[in-house]
Design a protein around this nucleic acid. Structure first.
Lengths: 248, 248
DNA sequence: ACGTTCGGTGAACGGTGTTTACAGAGTTGA
DNA sequence: TCAACTCTGTAAACACCGTTCACCGAACGT
């Protein structure tokens, strides 16, 4: 079907199985438990055979990162598919809540992809500037954000309120953002993507990621028996900050 | 001096050296590089000897967490000592900036203490409810926050704006907060520690931790060449949100 | 002075990543 | 069809890891 020769089919199958077992080990015992020998054992082969598929353990972990990102993106996409296409604000909220739920349900995966100081995920690694427009998970965020911008007038911070040192970075991001949006058939008038708007998107992500990381890593200053209301109040704050009402 | 017998002195010395070398390995190669054999090699002893000091590698890592927290607290305390005792708001800002700078300068330590899904640091492990009032780093935050509350009138969110589900947790935290403050000689009238105030402190920490974690883990959606203005604008936002002006 | 405790060693066990030489099946082309 | 070649696997080996065990000598309390 998808592949021509028989060898290629078997190889793809094995590759899938390797990643699958690696994920199971990650979930069960964290990053340190993802062992070449353990993976091989589960597959009924020997450890050196894995070197036909990956350069090293580190390389395998890297590929697993991409795999995880893809799964997360797929899960969020599935959630979105069940929603009204009209309610673009609701879609943003759904993606945010979906991200949180995924992270809480998959703490080890989250720690690997979003909580490792060294490997910067490098992802596609073609350009270097923007991650979000390339990695499949980031694209979902930008898509729903773009749909809101295309359907609602928001009240972003004034451009004058954006720290000067961020200007060039924000402009660069805005450009690749418009390009990525256009690729998905979402036309954003360049004037609604003001510097203040892009700045707000950055702040939005900082707070979203921050809350989720805090919760996954259990770094609350005291025991919070149910952090969900805190999360929801943060989302409401963010929406209110730019004059969005969840109703319409 | 501090210890009576000669054996105790030597033991304390060795214990210090173990943690010191373990830290060096952590900084150089992350958690996985902290190896009993490598530590022993640096000390000129054999690996099994370390079991006279720690139950296991995991136990050693745990102690190292506490050690790191202590160092962070010491560094922040030193910063505070150079500041005017009057400018309590400036002290809060200094602690926040100090936390960020420490995290960026010590990413591996940060990842170990503030970015591990499994071991919840357990820290003192006596009570279970509140972490901040026990661990030395949390106490610094609470101290400077307490000083602001004792010297300034702030405009916290109304109690009615606090999600109902958080009430009991917040009340519990407030009580242990007042107790911890009193221990340090800071008297907080219980009426300034409204539910809204404690809620704001929680939100404050979420945003502070969130930004720092994001930066350490490099999870920006695009390349931000200098994130410091973003951090500073967040601090200004937080202060403005409760009506604090940095001047007085 | 004696027995005990403490901090250290060396050998061993099973597990790990990685390299090397080698074997066999799948594929390709004359 | 058959030879050349590529691809996927193996087995052995190396160096390293955490951990346990038996043992030893110096420091310690009585």
């Amino acid at each position: 079907m998808t592949e021509t020769t028989r060898r290629e089919r078997l190889r793809a199958e094995t590759e899938r199985e390797i990643l699958h077992q690696a994920r199971a080990l990650l979930v069960g015992g964290g990053r340190e438990a993802v062992t070449l020998r353990a993976i091989a054992r589960e597959l009924g082969i020997t450890a050196p055979a894995l070197y036909r598929y990956y350069d090293s353990r580190e390389d395998l972990l890297q590929r697993m990162c991409d795999d995880i990102c893809g799964d997360l993106a797929a899960e969020l996409s599935a959630d979105l598919a069940t929603m009204s296409a009209q309610d673009t604000i609701g879609q943003v909220f759904a993606v945010c809540r979906g991200f949180r739920h995924w992270a809480l349900a998959h703490p080890q995966e989250f720690a690997l992809v979003f909580g490792s100081p060294d490997l910067v995920t490098t992802s596609c690694a073609d350009g270097e500037a923007n991650r979000a427009t390339h990695d499949p998970f980031g694209r979902i965020f930008l898509t729903v954000a773009g749909r809101v911008l295309a359907t609602h007038r928001i009240e972003p911070p004034a451009d004058s309120a954006v720290p000067r040192q961020l200007h060039t970075d924000l402009v660069t991001f805005r450009d690749s953002l418009i390009a990525a949006m256009a690729e998905q058939g979402i036309a954003i008038p360049t004037d609604v993507l003001s510097l203040g708007t892009v700045f707000f998107m950055l702040q939005f992500w900082v707070r979203l990621y921050g809350h989720v990381a805090l919760e996954v890593f259990g770094c609350f200053p005291f025991a919070v028996s149910d952090p969900e209301p805190l999360f929801d109040s943060m989302l409401a704050d963010l929406a209110a900050e730019v004059g969005l009402v969840s109703g319409n």
